[in-house]
Nucleic acid binder design. Structure first.
Lengths: 163, 163
DNA sequence: ACTTGTCACTATGATTATCATAGTTACTAT
DNA sequence: ATAGTAACTATGATAATCATAGTGACAAGT
C-alpha cells in the first residue's frame, strides 16, 4: 500500500480511533492483552499473526502509550507487554465488539447454548450477558470488574491453536 | 497484501468483529452512515477515501447485511446506502471508540472546550457526555436516542472537506 | 564442551491491497 | 450539442502483509 492518509490529524474522534483500531492485528493483539496473555510467542500463536506483524504492532502500541514493555526476568532478559490506563480504557470498545458479534455474528446454535464468552461480574457473581450495568447489582461495569469465561467450544479452539 | 487469514471462522466474538471492523475504510464509512450521510460521493468526500475503496467496502457492507442499497430516485436511477438493524447495532462500538478518543486522543484544549462531538439525549435534552445511561433521566442510550453535535472546530473541518 | 531448546524477534522475496490519477456510463439541464 | 452530476471502474505504482526461514542471547541437559 502507499502511504495511507493519516487520520490522526482529523478532529473527529471516530477518525482518531480508527487510525489505531482500524487494523485487524491491533484488535487481535488487544484482545490477547485483555485476556491477560502478555508474552510475544503466546500472542503470536493465539492470533495466528506472523511475528513481524506482532512485533510491529506491539511497537506501535508502546509508542502510542497503550501498552508497556516490561522485563519479567533477567538472565536471560525477557520482556512482556502490559496495558496502560490508556490501553485499559479500550475495554469498552472491545466489549462492544464482543457484544455485537454475540448477537449478530453467529449462526443459531453455533456457540452451543449461550454466548461464546460469558462475562461474570466479579463483585456479585452475576452473568452480565451483554450489559454495561450489572443486572445483578446495578454496578457499572469496566475492565477489571469482569471475568471472561470462554464457552467450551471456544476453549477447545484456543487449546488447538496454542498446541 | 497476500490473502489474509480469515477470521470469520474463529469462534471468538472479538475475532469475528475484527474481521469486519479491523479496517479503517469500513470504520470511516460506518461513521458516515451513522451521521446520516448516505450518498456515495458524500461519503467519499468526507472520508477522503478513493472511490474504488468506497465502492468495495460498501459492497462488503451490503453482502454482510450491514448496509442496504436503495434507489432514491428513478430516471436517472441513483442509489444510496442505509444501515440495517445489524448495522445500527454497531453504534455501541462506534460510540465506545468516540468515547475513548474524547478522553485519550486529544491534546489539552485541542477541541476548544468540551468534546469534539457532543451527544444530546433527544428525549430529555441532556448532554450525555460519554455515558451509556442518560445522566439527566436515567434512560439507556442507543442509536436513535442521541443527536451528535460536532464542535465548532470539527464542523469547520467537515465543511472544508466537503467544499 | 556440545547439542538441544526457548524466547523474542529480524530478514527475504512474493503477493496484493491501497494509492493517485484518469476515464466511463447513464442520464438531466440549458 | 455541450456541459454537468452521480456513481462508479481502469490502470499502473507503491508498500503492507504474507510464508518461510534465520538470528542472538541465554539455560539446561548429556
Amino acid at each position: 500500500m502507499p502511504k495511507r492518509a493519516n487520520l490522526s490529524d482529523t478532529l473527529c474522534p471516530v477518525g482518531r480511533s480508527a487510525e489505531l483500531l482500524g487494523d485487524r492485528a491491533v484488535l487481535l493483539i488487544l484482545r490477547e492483552l485483555f485476556f491477560g496473555r502478555r508474552r510475544f510467542e503466546v500472542i503470536a500463536a493465539n492470533t495466528a499473526l506472523r511475528p513481524q506483524l506482532v512485533s510491529a504492532r506491539l511497537k506501535l502500541l508502546v509508542t502510542e502509550g497503550i501498552a508497556e514493555r516490561r522485563a519479567y526476568q533477567e538472565r536471560p532478559v525477557r520482556h512482556d507487554y502490559w496495558l496502560t490506563d490508556k490501553g485499559k480504557a479500550l475495554f469498552e470498545v472491545l466489549y462492544a465488539m464482543r457484544n455485537w458479534a454475540e448477537r449478530w455474528a453467529y449462526a443459531p446454535g453455533e456457540t452451543g447454548d449461550g454466548h461464546a464468552i460469558r462475562y461474570i461480574h466479579r463483585a456479585c457473581g452475576a452473568d452480565v450477558g451483554t450489559a454495561t450495568i450489572c443486572p445483578g447489582c446495578g454496578a457499572s461495569l469496566g475492565y477489571g470488574d469482569l471475568k471472561g469465561e470462554p464457552s467450551s467450544v471456544l476453549k477447545a479452539e484456543q487449546i488447538a491453536r496454542a498446541g
